[in-house]
Nucleic acid binder design. Structure first.
Length: 132
DNA sequence: ATTCTAACA
DNA sequence: TGTTAGGA
């Protein structure tokens, strides 16, 4: 599927992502520090997020809202990574696309997000307590 | 105008 | 996590 190519295109700056996810820049940067997401950077060190990054952030947000802490989120993400098929990384990063392009892609993404019900997880709270 | 990092009265 | 300082 030469489609995950688009899913990984570095398209949106921080401002757009905060609106798409309703997460604060602080939270988003923190999740990156925790290794939950790996947004690309422009030459000016500014983050450029892909659809996959946004998707991931929404899943993280969902989990956190259910009481899952960072450790728990990492666990869930680790499990989901084993389940899904691996995809090769993205090479060079492109700066930006026209608004028309972005909106076209966004429409597609929104359709996918709503048609793919995210599995909910029972894991919540201090997961570290149950690790062994 | 936006975003970035570092740090905490 | 919020917020702010000081740069780019």
């Amino acid at each position: 599927m030469g489609d995950d190519f688009r899913r990984n295109l570095p398209l949106f700056p921080m401002g757009t992502v905060t609106q798409l996810t309703e997460l604060t820049p602080r939270q988003i940067r923190y999740y990156e520090q925790q290794g939950l997401i790996h947004p690309a950077r422009t030459q000016g060190r500014q983050r450029l997020f892909s659809f996959n990054d946004v998707d991931l952030l929404l899943r993280i947000k969902s989990l956190m809202e259910k009481g899952v802490n960072i450790a728990g989120v990492k666990e869930v993400l680790r499990e989901q990574k084993q389940t899904s098929q691996p995809m090769r990384p993205l090479g060079p990063i492109k700066p930006d696309l026209s608004k028309a392009e972005v909106y076209k892609l966004m429409k597609r993404q929104l359709q996918e997000l709503s048609s793919r019900p995210n599995q909910s997880h029972l894991i919540r709270g201090e997961l570290s307590r149950f690790f062994h």
